[in-house]
Design a protein around this nucleic acid. Structure first.
Lengths: 204, 204
DNA sequence: GTTGCACTCCCCTTTTTACATGATTTATCA
DNA sequence: TGATAAATCATGTAAAAAGGGGAGTGCAAC
């Protein structure tokens, strides 16, 4: 079985690199490449590959959004998230958007082949480092409610409880309660460390 | 004149990609590659290339430090910073460490060749995007003093003016003054937006 | 030799947070 | 249906930060 592989990445070096890594593989057919979301979608109207390697960071739209869009229109295409970053939030969002796997850009040829062959069968694949990140953060994962996220966002933008209350049509006292819960959940002493923690945990 | 090019990057895809982009260039000799700082330094003890393409993010040590080290030992080697990020702080630090140029990983083959040939002559090269960033941020560049940076760091860690004062052996009033100046310099309304801005501007 | 800047310190007032404690309503899920 | 969690609001005190002002020292550059 020949697997048709397409790649979306705005870095020529990476496209060239993957092309080079895969060119001697008999089971792989190089379907083409795109450097942005628009030309990727245009290509898919003409023909559909089996597997798309998709960068998270694209110039015109995030790989997350593109992934969602592609899976809606072409559910039979399997998508592998591709990124420099081994960050929980990216991996989670990509998988939530319908991706079948996640591979870091420092992947070896072997790892890349494994990923492509695994997802082409309809299975899920994570590179070693990505799965480690998933496991590690599952324990320390902090779950914020919808409202808490909203409040956190506005706090980080420099709004006071009063202003946030007006913005969300709730009383200042309520905002204060959410704030207290945020401090407790993120184990922060005050606003400064709250914002610090939140950025480090990629919550904002 | 044949230019010997070496590359240090922890992403196989990028190494492969650059290799592929340069393999048909007659003026380029592929000197080799390393995926970390240690093996790069080991290689340089054996032989020295003319130009090194150096990633900013390496597993064992930052490209910035490696750049400084290499230039100290081998001043005749020209180094081009290589990164996904078009961020002022990275570019500046890399140039401060003795690099001769800075190229983003989405560079085209033409751009890459231009960069290598320019720095091999001892000149400075910036990719289009990098030089735009330099110009753009030169105007909006925020300069913090040594003390302000220290205070900012401690604020972000959640310390109060009082505690910071004890830590730095200065009075609470002084810390408060620094804090006021930080708010003014970063155009922040309060601690929350101060920490937010500081992280966005890569100051902490 | 004075101008500028970083760093230091102090006063005062108002606003905002932090902390404690308790309580109601609504929605969801087992 | 009863339990659970989220979201809402309140009251009160203490601590911290924001915002305004002024002011002295030392150092380096012009």
């Amino acid at each position: 079985m020949i697997i048709k592989v397409f790649i979306v990445d705005d870095h020529y070096m990476v496209i060239e690199g993957i092309h080079s890594l895969l060119q001697n593989e008999k089971s792989i057919e190089w379907s083409g490449h795109a450097t942005n979301a628009v030309s990727c979608l245009a290509f898919l109207q003409q023909q559909q590959p089996d597997v798309i390697l998709m960068d998270i960071n694209l110039p015109d739209k995030s790989g997350i959004d593109l992934c969602k869009q592609v899976k809606e229109k072409y559910p039979s295409i399997f998508i592998i998230g591709l990124s420099t970053f081994n960050q929980l939030s990216f991996i989670q969002k990509m998988m939530d958007s319908g991706a079948s796997g996640y591979v870091l850009k420092n992947a070896s040829q072997t790892e890349l082949m494994e990923a492509i062959e695994t997802v082409a069968k309809g299975k899920i694949y994570f590179s070693d480092e990505a799965s480690k990140t998933l496991q590690k953060n599952e324990a320390t994962h902090i779950i914020l409610t919808r409202r808490e996220k909203e409040v956190l966002e506005l706090i980080a933008e420099g709004m006071t409880n009063n202003v946030i209350g007006q913005k969300l049509f709730i009383s200042t006292a309520t905002v204060d309660t959410h704030r207290k819960n945020l401090l407790a959940k993120l184990n922060a002493k005050n606003t400064a460390s709250l914002v610090r923690m939140a950025t480090q945990l990629q919550l904002i």
